[in-house]
Amino acid sequence: SHCAGCKEEIKHGQSLLALDKQWHVSCFKCQTCSVILTGEYISKDGVPYCESDYHAQF
């Protein structure tokens, strides 16, 4: 499978399933500020955001 963030193949190591896609753990980050999302996040149109950036933009 391929990472939804960087589009590279996910080989051995940690990956996560979010928004119905596979991601490298380090690629699942806020679209705006690039903080790596480990806990709470909000998505809009399949794109992840941290809570503060989501509320600031939408």
Rank of each mutant, 00 (worst) to 15 (best):
C50E: 01
C50D: 01
T38Y: 06
G13L: 08
S15G: 15
D45C: 07
H12F: 11
C27R: 02
A56W: 07
A18M: 10
A4F: 15
Y54G: 11
P48R: 02
S15K: 15
I42C: 15
S43R: 04
C3V: 00
A56D: 12
S52C: 06
C50K: 03
Q31N: 06
D45T: 10
S43I: 08
Q57E: 06
G39A: 09
Q31I: 09
H12V: 10
E8V: 10
I36N: 13
T32W: 12
G39H: 07
K11Y: 10
D20R: 11
Q14S: 10
I10P: 04
S43N: 11
C6G: 01
Q57H: 15
V35C: 02
K44H: 12
S26T: 15
F28Q: 00
C6E: 00
I36Y: 05
K44D: 13
L17C: 11
C30T: 01
C33D: 02
Q14E: 13
F28K: 03
V47T: 08
E8C: 02
F28W: 08
K11D: 07
E51G: 09
V25A: 13
I10G: 02
V35W: 01
V25E: 15
Y54C: 14
S15P: 14
S43Y: 14
G13T: 07
S52N: 15
S43H: 05
K29L: 01
L37T: 05
G46H: 03
C30Y: 00
Y54V: 05
A4E: 02
G39L: 04
E8R: 10
L17G: 12
K44I: 08
K29E: 02
Q31A: 12
D45P: 01
K29W: 00
Q31D: 07
T32Q: 13
C30G: 01
G39M: 05
H12R: 10
S1P: 05
K11R: 10
Y49I: 05
Q22M: 12
A56L: 10
G5W: 04
S26R: 14
S52G: 10
I42P: 04
L16Q: 09
C3M: 01
A18L: 07
H12S: 14
C33K: 02
V25K: 15
H24D: 03
I36K: 14
D53T: 04
H55P: 11
L17A: 14
E51M: 12
Y49W: 06
D53N: 04
I10K: 01
Q31L: 04
E40L: 04
I36C: 15
A18Y: 07
S1W: 11
K44M: 10
F58T: 15
L17F: 10
H24A: 00
S52H: 06
G5P: 01
E9Q: 08
A18Q: 10
V47K: 07
H24K: 02
L37V: 07
T38F: 07
K7S: 10
E9G: 11
W23V: 04
C50S: 01
V25W: 12
D20K: 10
G39E: 13
E40A: 14
S15R: 07
C27F: 01
L19F: 14
E51N: 11
G46F: 08
S34Q: 09
Y49L: 07
H2M: 11
I42V: 12
H2N: 15
Y49S: 03
Q14L: 04
V47C: 08
D53F: 02
G39W: 03
K11C: 12
E40P: 13
V47H: 14
Q31V: 11
Q14C: 04
H12D: 15
W23K: 03
V25P: 15
Q22K: 14
E9F: 05
Q22R: 08
D53S: 04
I42E: 15
L37I: 07
Y41T: 06
P48K: 03
H55T: 15
V47F: 13
G39C: 05
K44Q: 13
C6H: 01
Q14Y: 04
Y41N: 04
C27A: 02
C33N: 00
I36Q: 12
C27H: 04
C6S: 01
E40K: 08
E40R: 08
S1D: 15
I36H: 04
E40M: 04
I10N: 02
Q57D: 05
T32P: 01
H2C: 03
S26C: 13
C3A: 00
K29Y: 02
G39D: 10
A4P: 10
T32N: 06
G5D: 09
G39T: 15
Q57C: 08
C6A: 00
S15D: 15
H2A: 01
E9P: 12
E9V: 08
K29H: 04
E40W: 05
I36T: 12
V35H: 05
C33A: 01
L16F: 13
G13D: 13
H2Y: 11
T32Y: 05
L19M: 10
S52Q: 09
I42A: 13
E51Q: 14
C6V: 00
C33M: 01
G5M: 14
V35D: 10
